[in-house]
């Protein structure tokens, strides 16, 4: 076999390894891409540290809340308010009601999504139950708070936003990496007593 062939083979083997690596690199690339552009309705799962987004006299915005249970997740899960009227650049606090309707300890993780997706980049949260996993004893119920703000750079064409949470049963999972990272940052307990 001549030198040229050996060189071609070597190059091609590197190309194969490179593309295999690239397929895994697509995972973080995709997340970064979605986060930067707000595509896919993905929002950051961590509290904002930007304190300069509060303004007076923001414009009117209607925010609707939607809750979903993933697969056979048996918990009761619903927003305390279906819809709120807020102004951009102003914090608002709302909450979601959950109850573990089973007779065993369960852990849940909520994943948010925003529609329309180009609103996602403008939604900031100071506090959200989606930042960490929720563990509830049998029959235990809780009100889970969300403290959110829309910055004023929200596109003018958007005057209504849907914020949706899907709750997943993660009892049998090892503590997933995502929540592990978050819990080191936000160790405090977000649960409040039900007010009703």
């Amino acid at each position: 076999m001549n030198e040229g062939s050996k060189k071609t083979i070597k190059t091609l083997c590197f190309a194969v390894l490179g593309m295999f690596t690239f397929s895994f690199a697509l995972v973080p690339l995709y997340d970064v891409f979605c986060e930067v552009t707000g595509l896919n309705g993905k929002i950051e799962l961590k509290a904002t540290n930007n304190t300069n987004i509060e303004i007076e006299n923001g414009r009117d915005l209607s925010v609707q809340f939607v809750s979903h249970n993933n697969e056979q997740m048996p918990w009761a899960f619903k927003p305390s308010e279906d819809s709120i009227k807020i102004k951009t650049g102003k914090y608002h606090t709302t909450s979601f009601y959950v109850k573990n309707t089973t007779n065993k300890m369960m852990t849940a993780q909520a994943i948010p999504s925003v529609a329309p997706s180009n609103a996602a980049a403008h939604l900031k949260k100071l506090e959200c139950f989606c930042f960490e996993q929720q563990e509830l004893a049998p029959g235990e119920e809780a009100l889970l708070p969300v403290r959110l703000i829309f910055d004023d750079a929200l596109p003018k064409s958007i005057n209504s936003v849907v914020l949706s949470y899907t709750i997943f049963d993660v009892t049998d999972y090892d503590k997933v990496q995502l929540s592990k990272d978050l819990q080191t940052n936000h160790g405090n307990d977000h649960k409040m007593e039900p007010s009703a």
Partner: peptide
């Protein structure tokens, strides 16, 4: 792992 599982942060 949770590459494609939303509950674990995948998609």
């Amino acid at each position: 792992t949770s590459f494609f599982n939303a509950a674990g942060g995948g998609d």
